[in-house]
Amino acid sequence: MTEAVGSTSLVRLENVNKHFGTLHVLKDIDLDIARGEVVVAIGPSGAGKSTLCRVINRLETIDSGTITFDGKSLAVEGRALAQLRSEVGMVFQSFNLFAHKTILENVTLGPIRVRKIARDQAEKRGMELLERVGIASQAEKYPAQLSGGQQQRVAIARALAMDPKMILFDEPTSALDPEMVQEVLDVMISLARDGMTMLVVTHEMGFARRAANRVVFMADGAVVEQNTPDEFFTNPGTDRARDFLSKILTH
């Protein structure tokens, strides 16, 4: 059904359930993401896409089911959990750059404090990554001095600095002014081309078509259907998906 990218799965969710109070936000989720695969999660708001993203590095806990990452069951707390998180990059809707640190410090903090890499080495690598996302000239500035698009590109560089096995993108362009969306998507597309494993929650259908191996359509906390972008957009298999697509693709 899906285009095979890597042979082994990097993340596997089995029968995952999650409630917020009485709200059942994740319903029996089964999902495999292979190494090097780019999965886009789309669906109406409240479908559980962001929660799906956040349970993978345990920013949200789950009520039942299992999640394995790189062959190991997800640690519950402590150093083992911190270790897992250091291997899974995360890019947030609201960037969440450390407000009291410079751009370069934002990118080097993780490598220095978590990976225990020497400062000069971390800074050299940090500058390379800022170069890659086109922000090297702003390295000494503070996050509030940058535009949203620039901040989000720094956030991607910050995630990359940890050499993660995967990056989670939780609506990375939803808080951006329209003219800044493309610069962030360009960085993400180049990452996808370089073989990074990605789970992207987004409303950017253009990105899904150009970079995704698979589209996962969610509604009301469940995975309703999943398919290649081409198949999904031209020939959705469920009424729910057809209805959603008709609302966002008509204009």
């Binding site: 590095n57 920013l59 402590g78 150093r79 911190a82 270790q83 897992l84 998180r85 250091s86 291997e87 899974v88 990059g89 995360m90 947030f92 609201s94 969440n96 750059l97 450390f98 407000a99 009291h100 903090l109 993780g110 404090r113 978590v114 956030a155 910050r158 940890m162």
Partner: peptide, 26 residues
């Protein structure tokens, strides 16, 4: 903002590192 501590956790900082480098300085 909660996002600051969340971003630090997502990088793999421990609770104490998170307080020391991100939350308390702010």
């Amino acid at each position: 903002p909660v996002g600051q501590a969340e971003a630090a956790r997502a990088l793999g900082l421990t609770f104490t590192q998170n307080l020391r480098f991100i939350v308390l300085p702010q």
